[in-house]
Design a protein around this nucleic acid. Structure first.
Lengths: 210, 210
DNA sequence: CAATAACTGGAAGAAAAATTCAACTTGGAA
DNA sequence: TTCCAAGTTGAATTTTTCTTCCAGTTATTG
């Protein structure tokens, strides 16, 4: 981010990488709410080291997930170039969910209510217009029913993600079934009434919790 | 539950009712994780009173929600008597979600991963065969695709509930749209492959979290 | 091989929630 | 009316998690 900072001492940089790898692995299986103490213990360092390098949890999350989030943005851009709009939408949602399946932490970040990061918000700003374009095209070609909105697509994402979180350990493939249900639902539901506000997408991904 | 216990003193019974009402209201808007201190403060009692009456949080949850859960079981029984199996299923799911919409706490209890209570487990045991019967009938009449299982219905419940939790404050009607998507999805998705295990229903509702 | 600035570990402090308890109050039986 | 078992209170204690801090270590520079 800030190329201006002086480079880290070699041992410090080594520790930083070690901490990032350790934290990523822990969060991949246990979610974002891993304590700094757990990270330090798993990496074999002191807690002070974690705090020195990542004073705010946000700093850690940014360092951990920014490249993964860029990957998802690229997926959206790639999807937007599909000739077949519906194929682009399904491809994008499935790819994104596959990534989330590999890392519970990333899934929580991309979907879950509490951890509103600038990172994720920016990603949504980038992706929403692309998705909106695909949806508009799909509606025009009759692949999606009239009235379908980006919020419905976001809802589908949240829906499948919820099943994924709930069945991660016991039925790690169940989310694919839920995805089939959600996609078929988007195509066949009556979505003509009371279109949800654009703003709702942000809220779906990031309800202020209470 | 235990009719053997001596009845409470009048003032104690009054406090008990007050605490239950207060706790229910707090949990309806803030979810199950309300602290005993908050409950005591809102009810105007000391914390000790809450602990004396409900030594385990489970005791409180049982007292608060058992009748509501019985209501949901009755819904399932009523749905099972529908001639039109699909109509029964949609009616049941919508009623259940409407109840959850009124109380975030009850929704978390009926769906969420952590609070596995005997209460809820028993309810699922009662309801699953009824839902299974409806689904089998609906498949027979072609209202649902071959391969549809109770786990798919449970997944639909979890999916819509997830949207409800995420949009409760910002878009309190969004879950109805998600419900339309989920229901249309159940009817139109290809559910023929890899049928999920029966057991998965329990896990969907109650993943051991990690 | 100093000198020193950066780095490290983990104990100590702070904050928030859960739980206990001893002194005090009160309903209701006798 | 008296008495005491039941009930109440809220401060104190325990538990858990987060955060700070400093005495001691190590890489790097001249």
């Amino acid at each position: 981010m800030a190329a201006s900072d002086p480079p880290l001492r070699r041992d410090a940089e080594r520790n930083r990488q070690l901490l990032l790898r350790t934290a990523y692995d822990l969060m991949a299986s246990a979610g974002l709410d891993v304590s700094y103490e757990d990270i330090a213990r798993a990496a074999g360092t002191g807690m002070g080291t974690v705090y020195r390098r990542f004073p705010q949890r946000q700093d850690l999350l940014d360092a951990l997930f920014s490249e993964h989030i860029d990957t998802v943005i690229e997926l959206a851009e790639q999807a937007a170039r599909y000739d077949d709009a519906w194929a682009g939408l399904t491809w994008f949602l499935e790819r994104q969910l596959e990534i989330e399946a590999k890392s519970r932490g990333l899934g929580e970040l991309l979907r879950s209510r509490n951890q509103a990061t600038a990172l994720v918000r920016r990603a949504h700003e980038r992706m929403t217009p692309l998705v909106a374009g695909l949806i508009a095209r799909a509606v025009r070609t009759g692949q999606l029913p009239a009235g379908a909105t980006p919020a419905d697509f976001a809802a589908a994402h949240v829906m499948v993600g919820g099943v994924m979180d709930a069945s991660r350990t016991s039925a790690p493939q169940m989310w694919r079934r839920a995805l089939r249900i959600a996609l078929a639902g988007l195509r066949h539901a009556d979505l003509s009434g009371d279109p949800p506000d654009e703003v709702i997408i942000d809220h779906l991904y990031n309800d202020p919790k209470n």
